[in-house]
């Protein structure tokens, strides 16, 4: 087998180990949350007995270690459990499965993240390459200044600014991004236009600056001077000689920002009232809906691990030293 496959399999194994460790951390930190679901739902006035009965129904009376292994074992089987909410001491069970609650929200989040990524990643790389090509020019400086500005302004402020300009002054896009599955693609895209622009402005700077720095870092290499002395033009040097050696750092920063689009956009979701997974998690924390919180946290952790794994693999396959050992 090619050594690269072995490396990938090893990384995959390490990723699973990491996920396992993370699951333990998530479980124990959720247990540390003050108060519990029983009290939160039944209120201060509930009698000791009612609370105890409710906790027993939810399985909260069992020891933590046992609960952890039951939970982790269920996840391994693909069962994320049942939400705490919707159950009531009244005896009518209207609770929903965690998977059923998360699925539409996750789909929305991935939709927003996907559209943003399709715009932001190529834009950032093209800006990074072109600023490296014309470095220290007015073009380079103005792009750098602009992206630095957008990354320095808090995302909610950009969001409100965009609403002010594109929803209030010119009514181009809706200010609310409520979507539902029945909408057509065009309608959905128009609904998420403002959050997409907001997120793009937030993440482009980081990726673009890393791309530019990675390329410029290579421009001092002897093989770049050699390429010049072989008559290569500036764009050839950037694209043919520097970029193939810069994929690893670029992939890492792209992976980091894509992960951010999945796990870190709750503020933007709140501003635009977008039904994404971030809001769901925050709501669940407030209501002490532990199974949902844990499931969201596991999805977030898995996203980070998977994207970083992909970045690592890109780093390996674009490096001939690793791909073609002696």
């Amino acid at each position: 087998m090619h050594p690269v496959f072995i490396t990938i399999i090893k990384r995959l194994g390490l990723g699973l180990v990491t996920l396992f460790v993370v699951s333990a951390i998530i479980f124990s930190s959720v247990s540390l949350l003050p108060g519990d679901f029983g009290e939160a739902v039944l209120g201060q006035a509930a009698t000791e007995e009612t609370v105890a009965a409710f906790r027993e129904e939810l399985g909260l009376d069992k020891p933590a270690v046992q609960r952890y292994f039951e939970w982790a074992g269920a996840i391994l089987k693909g069962d994320l459990g049942t939400s705490f909410s919707g159950r009531s001491a009244s005896g009518v069970d209207r609770s929903r499965s965690v998977a059923g609650m998360i699925a539409p929200r996750l789909k929305n989040t991935l939709f927003l993240a996907g559209v943003t990524a399709v715009i932001a990643v190529p834009l950032a790389i093209i800006l990074g390459l072109s600023t490296a090509l014309y470095r220290n020019s007015w073009y380079d400086r103005s792009i750098n200044a602009t992206t630095l500005t957008t990354i320095s302004i808090p995302d909610f402020f950009i969001a409100y600014l965009l609403i002010l300009v594109f929803a209030s002054l010119w009514k181009v896009f809706p200010s609310l991004s409520t979507v539902d599955p029945s909408m057509l693609l065009g309608e959905r895209l128009s609904r998420i236009a403002l959050p997409t622009i907001t997120l793009t402005l937030v993440i482009v700077a980081h990726m673009m600056r890393m791309t530019r720095a990675a390329i410029i870092g290579l421009l001092a290499s002897p093989y770049i001077e050699m390429a010049r002395l072989k008559g290569a033009s500036r764009s050839e040097i950037i694209l043919k000689h520097a970029l193939p050696n810069a994929w690893a750092p670029i992939a890492t920063v792209v992976a980091f920002n894509l992960a951010f689009l999945v796990v870190g956009v709750v503020v933007v979701e709140v501003v635009f009232v977008y039904p994404g997974i971030g809001q769901l998690m925050v709501d669940s924390v407030t209501s002490r809906d532990i199974p949902v919180v844990q499931a969201c946290a596991m999805i977030f952790a898995g996203t980070y691990i998977l994207l970083n794994l992909i970045a690592d693999v890109i780093g390996i396959v674009t490096n001939p030293r690793l791909l073609h050992p002696r």
Binding site: Y223, K230, P244, N319
Partner: peptide, 27 residues
């Protein structure tokens, strides 16, 4: 420089000191 470049590598070529550093590792 655009004109000068046409000489480089074709009419005048350069052989560098450290071949290990002067070759692009990715090609």
């Amino acid at each position: 420089e655009v004109e000068r470049r046409k000489y480089w590598g074709t009419k005048i070529a350069y052989v560098a000191q450290s071949a290990a550093a002067a070759f692009n590792p990715a090609q």
